[in-house]
Amino acid sequence: MILDLTHVLAGPYATYQFALLGADVIKVENPTDPDCARGRGPSIDLAAEGRGLNYMVQAANKRALALDLKTKVGREAFLRLAERADVVVENYSPGVMDTLDLSADLLMKRNPRLIHCSINGFGGGAGSAQSLKAYDNVIQAASGNMAQTGKSGPPVKTGASMIDYFTGMSAAFAISAALHERAASGVGQHVQCAMFDCALALMAPEIAAHLFEGARRTVPSEAGLGTYDTADGQLMLGAFTPEQVRTLWRSLGEAEFVVEGWDDVWKSSPAMRERLTTIFATETASEWEARLNGVGIPAQRVRTLDEALADPALARPHFLKALRTHAGDVTVPLSPFTLERDGPTITAPPPRVGEHGEAILREHGFDESEIASLRSEGAIP
């Protein structure tokens, strides 16, 4: 059982991975201040009922318990659940769980087998930034990610929330590793996953190159990697290795450039780029895409999201699942992998706030009088 105290994107995405694989994930939220993602997304009707699309994309298969952890009885109820849990995942700002008197140390003392995962912006240490709140866009700015994206102009934030989702997947991987270790040791542990560290991990080659202090060379932008205008749109070319660059020029019927190794690729790149700019303008992006892929050169037409989803050659029926709602179908992604057996699947729709509260409490030994007491104290709706 996983107790999910997360909100927004990164944390819910981490627990969603386990829910898709069949884990019992219980989303625990404040009854009067639930996950803010519930109110976000283009559907007015779904957002109004607390099932906005930003929430729907990572909440299927979960069960929902509305529980106010700021009340004494709510805290005690959560501790009873945590004593039987395998994992607790939270992405509050550092220190919030301590304020609630639900620190990782306390929870793991109550349940020594517990895996407690904390997801935060800048890490859980004692540094000056560790207590700061953060979102994907802020981390992209702080980490240098935006500056890397905007090397040829103003820094640019990626359109997708890459840091959030990479952080969520990293946290899920770390929790899985901790569960595997627990199978051998019998003891749980505290896992921490910082969005800032995940942002740095996405730039590993750039960081290594930036920090390298030995003799280095400066190379131009490689002509085989980049976007070119065609007769009707843009083409992203991926001729990376010297062999691919040789194949590219052979397929174009051009003998001007002799490429034996990386030095030749770099030395000739400015002239290559100038020539490719002229060549690619003579045919459409789709024609170049077919021609280059036909000889083993990675190349794709730059598509809009609408085009990518509608393209039959790129269709991903195993990856996208339509959920029926009164406001219309909501299509959500599953996990970005498949398994030969028991892979990611959706068996239950995203829950409303507190939808399974009483059933969950009864499963964990709460009798009617205890449930009534929680309600009278305002800990549950």
Rank of each mutant, 00 (worst) to 15 (best):
L339F: 13
G378V: 03
Y228C: 01
A215C: 04
P349Y: 11
W266I: 07
G121E: 09
R216K: 14
S335M: 13
A178V: 05
M195K: 04
E90F: 06
C198Q: 15
R84Y: 04
E358W: 05
H326W: 05
P205K: 00
I360W: 04
L305D: 06
S118C: 11
P298V: 06
A255T: 14
M56V: 07
L9H: 12
G127I: 07
F337C: 10
L65N: 00
I371E: 00
V89T: 14
R84V: 09
A47P: 05
G127K: 10
D367S: 06
S43M: 02
C193V: 15
L81C: 00
H116A: 13
I371P: 00
A290P: 03
A14V: 00
R182N: 10
R38M: 00
A147Y: 11
D263F: 06
F173H: 12
A209G: 03
R250M: 08
V295H: 12
G150M: 13
R324K: 12
P154D: 13
G95K: 06
T149Y: 10
I207C: 03
D367T: 01
P351Y: 05
S286F: 10
L114F: 10
P205W: 02
M56C: 09
E29D: 12
T167L: 08
I119V: 14
K72Q: 14
T345E: 14
D4S: 01
V89K: 02
L5P: 07
Q244V: 07
A194V: 02
N111D: 05
V89P: 01
F240L: 15
Y13C: 08
A379D: 01
F240E: 11
T284P: 06
G153K: 09
D35P: 01
A281V: 06
K321S: 07
P298Q: 03
G168L: 11
R275D: 10
